[in-house]
């Protein structure tokens, strides 16, 4: 069951998650099927994002969604799954 399908189309959290998925697939997982990168796939602990790759995701998120991510927010607790990153973006944007 793909967790991305839980929400309605047009839901901003789905759009944020899908943008993150597209970015991570293109940058760090070229050739991987989008269905394998779920909202709850561990990114840091699963070896998909190392520390340098995480910086690139933080930069992408800051620019694309016009928010500022604090250093302590980019750790494993807040940045290990697409769902968590999307939630952080939503919180920051107040949407």
């Amino acid at each position: 069951m793909n967790t991305t399908n839980k929400n309605q189309p047009g839901d901003p959290s789905v759009e944020i998650a899908d943008e993150l998925r597209r970015f991570i697939l293109a940058e760090f997982l070229p050739g991987e099927s989008a269905a394998n990168l779920r909202d709850d796939t561990p990114l840091r602990t699963g070896g998909i994002l190392d520390s340098v790759a995480t910086l690139k995701v933080v930069s992408f998120v800051e620019q694309r969604f016009s928010i500022e991510v604090e250093a302590h927010e980019a750790g494993v607790e807040h940045f290990d799954r697409i769902a968590d990153i999307a939630a952080l973006v939503r919180r920051k944007r107040g949407t």
Partner: peptide
């Protein structure tokens, strides 16, 4: 899955 291979390498 590439994700599964990355997990293997991480371990």
């Amino acid at each position: 899955s590439i994700i599964a291979l990355k997990k293997w390498c991480a371990d």
